[in-house]
Design a protein around this nucleic acid. Sequence first.
DNA 1: TACGTAAACTGACTGGGCTCAATAATGAGT
DNA 2: ACTCATTATTGAGCCCAGTCAGTTTACGTA
Lengths: 200, 200
Amino acid sequence: MPVTSQPLGRRERNKQEKLDRITAAASELFAKYGVQDVTTQQIADKADIGTGTLFLYAKTKGELLLLVQNAHYADALERGRADAETIPDALDAVMAIVRPIVECNRIQIDNGRFYLREMVFGDPTEPHHSVALSIVGQTEEAIAAILDRKELAGEFHAAMTARIVSAIMFVSMAASVNAGLDIEALVTDIRTQISLLIPR
Amino acid sequence: MPVTSQPLGRRERNKQEKLDRITAAASELFAKYGVQDVTTQQIADKADIGTGTLFLYAKTKGELLLLVQNAHYADALERGRADAETIPDALDAVMAIVRPIVECNRIQIDNGRFYLREMVFGDPTEPHHSVALSIVGQTEEAIAAILDRKELAGEFHAAMTARIVSAIMFVSMAASVNAGLDIEALVTDIRTQISLLIPR
DNA sequence: TACGTAAACTGACTGGGCTCAATAATGAGT
DNA sequence: ACTCATTATTGAGCCCAGTCAGTTTACGTA
């Protein structure tokens, strides 16, 4: 056992460093060219690792996108959560959660839609996928918390309503019909739908 | 020009016959093994056509599934529509539309989820895809018609509510979390969500 | 019947995601 | 320092959806 302050062996450090290189390479290439126009070979080359190695760190190309994007969505959620606390109106507060996530999703439309696709249709037992699902869960909890804040009419189910909001967001962001909408139009569209859910 | 009662030339007849063979072959193989476990080669072989020919009739494997399934969903919608007319309660009537579609989708879970994936993420300019979108549109119209039937509280937007019902259906059927649910459990889950949308 | 051409068909081929048998690195035990 | 089992790495190659240059077929026209 080395006396250094590093509690990690060379093995762990190498692995971490490799994961970092992969994340950086994928992040850069995806942002520049879009997921669909980047090959896993290019990512492996840029990260300076073998083809097979890449798939030890992310079992599919989709997982690779989740690995790269999850952190951004988690940030967006955190910002929205903080913002929402300062807003009294329920609908406005919910939209404060929604907006940053839509913005994050729309930085690059194709990547955003691919991310959503992977979330719903990818393998939920993969690690990056379950992180993504957990972010969705936290988003729904944050929305439910807002709805609970105002004690609304007797039998109002905050958690269930939050699930519906989540479904509305997903379909609105993913639908090819909406692929042409800019962020503002999309947010407005989502707001209109959610307004039907929240009694005033 | 031939004098026969057939208004179609050999060319048109050949094309139709080939399309029929493709539809039959794909239908059978998909039902038996699941979309994911059938190769386009197998379909081409079974339909007794060349590899390339297959893709003249459906540009992608996904389009092939839409080709095969669209008719079933259209049937399901029609059955639900007829059924709904006899039901006075709005929520029950909406569920009469929903149920046959869920049943159709769950005949084979993987194929059902693949169909939904193709609907949202496939190329909307392809012919079978736009048929699928049109079925969704008709479903939303049918639901909106039910909601309009009962003239509910002043500013109740039937069309927008129908869109939300559609989103709820989609996410509930597609979500991997629900992949284990049987038809009854899934229908109940969807009903619970929709009940929050329709004031009584 | 023969010709021209447009439409339909074909299968060898390509590109790319992913696998796996072989190899190398690591570090615990001696 | 020297095993040696365990874990990490690797790239040639597999599989399969989808393409395209070349061929065949249908059919109007002479």
